[in-house]
Amino acid sequence: MSHIQDISVVNLLISFSILIIPLAGFWYFRVGLAKATVIALIRMVVQLSAVAVYLEFIFRLNNPFINLAWVFLMILVGVFTTLKRSNLSPRLLAFPLIISGITSLVVIDAFFLGFIIHLPYVFESQYFIPISGMILGNAMNHNIVGLNAYFDGLVTNQNLYYFLLINGKSKRAALNPFIRQAMLKALNPMVANMSVMGLISLPGMMTGQILGGNSPSTAIRYQIMIMVAIFTGCSINLMLSIIFGNKVAFDAMGGVKRNIFRKEKA
């Protein structure tokens, strides 16, 4: 395999010129997305450039404490973004979600990095940080959908919850329909995505490895492993977030606390 062809900064800047096509389309059809697109692009460039700088630094140090601190920071950012995007109370749910994030990551990293890839040093920054980041990034997206569906369902369809609870079901059984719905909404798209992988979607990790000079078979093995890791990590994270969240989301009479949302629902 040949080494990857580097992209110069000048060429990267020139690549932005092709954006004139979608931007012209937005202008022509009065989509009103041009300003948001430009802002998003600027943010992406700034954020990724910053990541490049500190990842270079972190990779050079390769210190387990710094690597752990970095992953913990990613968990915190993921949790607070999830809570903000799902309109849920950080005061009530931040701690349960942080514990869920840590637990799911410990399980996945220990299993895949320690047992499957068999790394002699599990905190090796080259593996530990990007794989943890992929799992956390995906878990965040699916948690936003799942937790929002769960708590929103409990509030908007509280008749069903109280119907089951008062008519003799345990709290756990009364919550089951809502947990099922949340899991389906959050994880169904990932199942669908896995089923067409390679046919109508070429995953980023595999493409990146091939571009980086690895053989397609190695890239595909990594891709399969990371998909299993992401799916398992997201499922564990969502289940634990709901289980731990349930510990703080209900009052003593079994009702959903009204302040579970940042802005209370009517």
Binding site: N159, I166, N167, G168
Partner: peptide, 25 residues
């Protein structure tokens, strides 16, 4: 709550069928 049964308003929000409701209960 083990001694009571409850019929709330808005019964159509519950489930898809009576059979499903029986299963849930």
């Amino acid at each position: 709550r083990k001694q009571v049964a409850y019929l709330p308003q808005g019964v159509d929000l519950f489930a898809n069928t009576g059979e499903e409701l029986l299963y849930l209960l």
